[in-house]
Design a protein around this nucleic acid. Structure first.
Lengths: 344, 344
DNA sequence: ACAGTTTATGCAACCGGTTGCATGGAGGCT
DNA sequence: AGCCTCCATGCAACCGGTTGCATAAACTGT
């Protein structure tokens, strides 16, 4: 059928093993034969059969990322995209292929991952914390199969490596930015009390509030669901209370829009009377009016780091658990662009 | 190391070939041995080595999708995501793995695809029309390597299969919707004259305008770049001209926002004085105020169809070129929700 | 009871690289 | 000159399934 290593060997007048060694830079080969072999490869247009190769040395040189197709929400946005791009970039650089595989949290879904692993089709796997199941992860650990979790896992007694946003730092950054713009009475509108990332962001928020010695009303930290309607109701409550905030940090773009609209409805001027900021930069934050200042993460980099570490695990065969928390940065827009600085 | 087919064979007291046949439902095996073998497989927790398998029968059972990492724009949105999910779903269903690989349009990038193909790592490939290069595609054709293009390729003399949105139908649907809402003087704001999809949408637009015998000013079809500023300038020109439209179809969400804002600035009431509609449903169209009516495509389905066809090509070894154009549907929001119906 | 057919299974080669061990020749040292 | 070392390469087994061909057992028909 196609050109094999033996064809090349024959053409170059050497043995297959020599060709193999040239291909992999193993052992010592003389200039001369090396040249003959390259020559032959070029002439025959030889391309090594990667399947045979993977099979022979027991490593497919591929990693997988598990996705949850049924939970399209979780990955709805650019977030997922850019992360995958980052992962692919790192994988490609190290000569690994990237396989995408669905894994809903049911039995069948994980089965497909296990099949990849047990079937020796991948060397390592990345998967979102949302797919983390105790039974599954411990199975991986027992096999000491290389893996990296995307997002900080809740069950913290597990030993897996993970990468995530540094949510505490993100919470602080949000407050710091608002403070620098002259806001002094800062509220926090979260989209879920139980979510780990919200807890971490609020912890950072508290720290920064404390650092600048700002006012802190417990009623300013409020939890709601991510919807325009419920967001507006929460904001109205804040703005009609006795202790009115002059700025708000929102968990997501929807809540930020809700805040802006409710504030406007109550005849507040955004950003001069009331500053609004949210997490994650998206087309919505860019195109809103006013544009919404956001706390952004380089998700491409997040993916890249995750994949890089996974590959290190694979190649060094070291199963050290390793964590990275990526620092965020502020993308400044009009929603916090106060002209009349208040002063404390 | 791990359990092999020979271990199973030994445990069941048969030969490896028999086990293999049971595994693949090939040939005729007696109930009895069949049971013995299943028994042995269960006891030994046997999982076939897929690499060996792929190698032995020359098919890796994997397909790839090429992406253009440097062109993150093109795939920025949910579009790409959901398509990939659709592709994965179809692939998974047929027992194929999905590999994602970067392929910028430079030489090196395509090299990575060629490597996958020549290296026998994939059975077929999907790639976006934007990566289409004559030299590359003809190479595929000469090899009659299975491939499907995502999006209609420009160079139409090529024989490749492709899937795309039915842009002409989309253009018609847009007009039909506006017509049904009572708009009669409909403009079209495109984000690029050379883009094939815009040309097709405009063709559909013309057809529908014609069908309902609506007014058509050539100045109503205008091309601009996708930006708020340029969009607003174009819309201003339209609304200050002699022949004012009462609705506009925009190529994308940015232009739709621009239209809404400029119309408001000129004291038009949206949707009552001026209807706005755009292509592709996104968080922005949902969260805008008013919400923007959009012409949407089921991109998940688009991906699924593409992958399904690719796999059919692979398994039937038929290289018939095959095209699918997916019908769009309207997602109705307030930006076309006229209360006072105008007439003729 | 025997030739002919069908059914169930085994044997061994093969897919295309990889690699430990062996080997022959060149060069260095005494 | 004889021995040792090192360098460059070949031999052959191996990775773990798959499959064409062979064969033995069971059945069919006369």
């Amino acid at each position: 059928m196609s050109v094999t290593i033996r064809d090349v060997a024959k053409a170059a007048g050497v043995s297959p093993s020599t060709v193999s060694r040239v291909l992999n830079n193993k052992g010592i080969i003389s200039e001369e034969t090396c040249e003959k072999i390259y020559q032959a490869m070029r002439e025959l247009k030889y391309v090594p059969n990667d399947m045979a190769r993977s099979f022979a040395n027991g490593s497919p040189r591929a990693i997988a990322i598990a996705i949850n197709v049924s939970d399209a929400q979780a990955f709805a946005n650019t977030f997922f995209n850019r992360m995958v791009f980052g992962i692919e970039t790192a994988a490609h650089q190290s000569g690994y292929n990237l396989i995408i595989t669905n894994a809903t949290a049911d039995r069948e879904g994980l089965g497909s991952i296990e099949r990849l692993i047990m079937g020796k089709k991948i060397d390592g796997i990345l998967f979102p914390a949302s797919l983390l199941q105790r039974s599954f992860l411990t199975a991986l650990e027992d096999n000491s199969f290389p893996c990296v979790v995307l997002g900080r896992p809740g069950a913290s007694d597990l030993e897996a490596s993970w990468v995530d946003i540094d949510n505490e730092q993100a919470g602080q950054a949000a407050v710091n930015h608002l403070y620098s713009k002259g806001y002094r009475r800062i509220a926090f509108l979260s989209n879920g009390e139980k979510e780990l990332f919200n807890q971490d962001r609020i912890a950072g928020y508290r720290k920064a509030i404390d650092k600048w010695q700002l006012a802190l009303e417990e009623s300013w930290i409020c939890h709601t669901r991510s919807s325009l309607q419920e967001g507006r109701a929460s904001v109205r409550q804040l703005l009609e209370g006795n202790e009115k905030p002059d700025a708000i940090i929102c968990s997501d773009e929807k809540l930020a829009l809700a805040a802006i609209r409710e504030a406007k409805a109550l005849e507040y001027d955004v950003p001069n009377d009331f500053g609004v900021l949210c997490f994650d930069d998206t087309p919505v934050t860019e195109l809103a009016e006013p544009g919404i200042t956001s706390v952004d993460v380089d998700t491409f980099e997040l993916g890249r780091l995750a994949a890089e570490n996974l590959i290190r695990q694979i190649e060094r065969a070291e199963k050290s658990s390793w964590r990275v928390q990526l620092t965020t940065h502020i993308i400044e827009r009009d929603s916090t662009g106060r002209k009349t600085h208040g002063k404390e």
